[in-house]
């Protein structure tokens, strides 16, 4: 059998790849995709714990994380479209209207 730690380690690695994407990339769409990657790695942790502890609550959480991810994707992409319409770019270095 595979120990639970393997799943947790895989999830940690995927999460860190997502963090690199958010910190290092300048394309807003790819930053957004990296956030999805991080959400998914957390889902993997929840499903793994749910299966190893025999408790359905983890899978319920995944269900709600999926709902939030869908809502977040819809609103976030709408924000990106609105930004592109105003600035003609999705490079987050050039978008600094919220900077003080």
């Amino acid at each position: 059998m595979i120990p639970l730690n393997y799943y947790l380690a895989l999830s940690a690695i995927l999460f860190s790849i997502g963090v690199v994407g958010v910190l290092a990339r300048r394309n807003a769409i790819i930053v957004f995709m990296s956030i999805e990657l991080m959400l998914n790695s957390v889902n993997l942790t929840l499903v793994a714990f749910s299966a190893y502890l025999g408790n359905a609550t983890g899978q319920m959480f995944v269900f709600f994380v999926l709902t939030v991810a869908a809502a977040e994707a819809a609103v976030g992409l709408a924000i990106i479209i609105a930004l592109f319409r105003n600035k003609m770019t999705v490079n987050i270095d050039e978008i600094n209207i919220m900077k003080w």
């Binding site: 059998m1 120990p3 639970l4 730690n5 947790l8 749910s50 299966a51 190893y52 502890l53 025999g54 408790n55 359905a56 899978q59």
Partner: peptide, 13 residues
């Protein structure tokens, strides 16, 4: 950590 799937795992998913 538990090292194997719970026996309930096949039912709860």
């Amino acid at each position: 950590h538990p090292n194997q799937l719970s026996p309930l795992a096949t039912q709860i998913g």
